[in-house]
Computed example of a mutant assay.
Amino acid sequence: MTERKEGLVSLVITNYNRARYLRECLESIRLQTYPHWEIIFVDDASTDDSVQVVREWMEEHRDMWSEDRQLVMLTLPRNIGFAGAINAGFYLARGEYIAVQDSDDYSDRERFAKQVEYLQNHPLVDLVGTNYYAFPDHAPAEKKLATWIRYGEEIRRVYGRGGHCVCHGTILFRGKLFDQIGGPTRRISGAEDYEFIAKALNSKAQIENLPEPLYYYRVHDSQRSAQYYRRKESNDAN
């Protein structure tokens, strides 16, 4: 097993035909106040110009790349789905910390700094998510704070009842957690993110959410989790 690089955040972004959103997604990482990060970009056999967009962005910012700041792009020869793609990214991650971001979303510039600081100050916590703003693709200024995120011991209780209260796109966790339990499986199609959090909790991992919204979740018709997200938001309104 490769020794993990102290202080490094390895961000895994999986992508399938999200070319129109990639620049905003990547720029939100370039502008992070936390300086030690790498991007693992896994393209799941996109049929649009996603790969070209990323290559052009990399070239535009070529002066910032170094041994300690890289973008590693893995282009899969055929589509293997979310679980397979994100696991491929997790295996390539070198960092002490691993983070996730969806390719159609973006992060607050303080996200990594605040999540890493939290884990450094709470050595018994293995994974930390955050609250987030959701916004419709056609009206990005209409941001709505999520209300289904939970905190503390309530997180374990919610998952114990079969519920969900951690936004997968916001998570940052210790690399050793992946080394111990692996990534999501394909057993629950469309809910791999739920299964990963539940598996972590079942392994006695400690999980927390930060109440501050540090992530921006785009709502559109073609997103992978559209049906689940709408059901969750509907439940919040009742």
Rank of each mutant, 00 (worst) to 15 (best):
R231M: 06
R187H: 10
K144I: 10
R218Q: 12
T147M: 09
N202M: 07
D221M: 07
A198V: 09
R157A: 14
A226E: 12
R231V: 03
Q180I: 14
K204T: 10
L145Q: 07
G190M: 08
S222N: 09
Y229M: 10
T170G: 02
A141I: 08
Y215V: 01
A191F: 08
A205L: 05
R174V: 03
N202G: 14
V158Q: 02
H168N: 15
E154N: 01
R150K: 15
S189M: 12
P211I: 10
P213W: 06
I149R: 04
Y215C: 00
Y151Q: 05
C165D: 13
T147N: 09
S222G: 05
E192P: 09
L214N: 00
G183W: 08
G175N: 07
D179I: 05
N209D: 03
I149Y: 01
G182V: 04
P184G: 13
Q206Y: 05
P213Q: 06
A141S: 13
K176W: 07
A141K: 05
C165I: 04
E212W: 11
Q223P: 01
L145Y: 04
Y194C: 12
Y215Q: 02
Q223F: 02
H220R: 03
C167A: 02
C165Y: 10
G169C: 00
Y229W: 12
G190Q: 05
R161F: 09
I171Q: 03
S203Y: 15
A226Y: 07
R186Q: 15
Y229P: 02
K176M: 09
A141M: 07
G160Y: 11
R224M: 12
R174N: 04
R150C: 11
S222T: 08
H168W: 11
L214A: 01
R224A: 15
E154C: 00
H164D: 13
G163D: 04
P211Y: 08
K176I: 09
A226P: 01
G152C: 01
Q227L: 11
A205M: 04
G175M: 06
K204L: 14
S225M: 05
F196R: 03
L172D: 01
R150A: 14
E154W: 00
D193Q: 11
Y194M: 14
G175W: 11
L177S: 09
G162D: 11
N202R: 14
R186C: 15
L210W: 04
R218F: 02
H220T: 11
T185A: 06
K232F: 14
R157E: 12
A205G: 03
T185E: 14
R224W: 08
P213R: 10
K199A: 15
G169T: 00
S225Q: 05
Y215G: 00
F173W: 05
I207D: 09
A205E: 10
E212Y: 06
A200L: 09
L201K: 00
